[in-house]
Design a protein around this nucleic acid. Sequence first.
DNA 1: ATGTAATACATAGTATTGCTATGCATAGTA
DNA 2: TACTATGCATAGCAATACTATGTATTACAT
Lengths: 118, 118
Amino acid sequence: MKGSTGTMLLTLLNRQPLYGYEMLRELERRSEGVFSLKEGTLYPILHSMEAEGWVEAYWEAVNGRNRKYYRITDTGSRVLKQKKTEWALFRNAVDSVIGAEFKRQAESSQSMGGGRFR
Amino acid sequence: MKGSTGTMLLTLLNRQPLYGYEMLRELERRSEGVFSLKEGTLYPILHSMEAEGWVEAYWEAVNGRNRKYYRITDTGSRVLKQKKTEWALFRNAVDSVIGAEFKRQAESSQSMGGGRFR
DNA sequence: ATGTAATACATAGTATTGCTATGCATAGTA
DNA sequence: TACTATGCATAGCAATACTATGTATTACAT
């Protein structure tokens, strides 16, 4: 794990509000088991993102359990966009250096950054 | 920068022995300016890689300057291979989670050493 | 009913990683 | 002569994530 955890969590929250425990399972599912965060990793991150104003928390009782949901803020959305751009830059730079055996091909989906990496 | 520095440095050394200062410039060149390590970042990494037995150092005087060259060891080569696999796994997992706008496509070239990547 | 697993949030302590700042020393150049 | 580039090195700090632990409730199996 190397620092893109925040980006991934913001991405999840960008779709819909989630509570902590749910994020753990969702992240593990989407990464096909590669990322299995522990609570001790997740919660401090959520707290600091809340302190930064990237997410907002609210409590909700569901099925007799208290859950602390997090929703992304406008600031958080802007940060996410920036972080995605940074990730793409970082990833492509690493691949350039180590000579990745996979090539990237531009796709027609939404534009994140400059998007003419190869 | 988050932890793949060692992988990138080992990759450079896997092609040929280099001295520290040279690695800084080579890394910057290959990453097109994205990675511009400082000496304070590089040398501790080299020392620890040497302590791990992944690289060997030897002094050589060139053009009236003393340079400390590093060459990769057999152990280092094995570690590099493993680290490259881990990087690919990590990178693809992050992309899966954040929904990268680039798709990966299998390439026919070899992974180590040869395959030039632009 | 009782024990265990799963759910759910939280903090303390530690390890790793990388950066900034600084130091020393030599060679080339303006 | 002064400044820049080259070349190696360490100390101190900041960020990040992991391990370990604590608390509490709910679900389920024995």
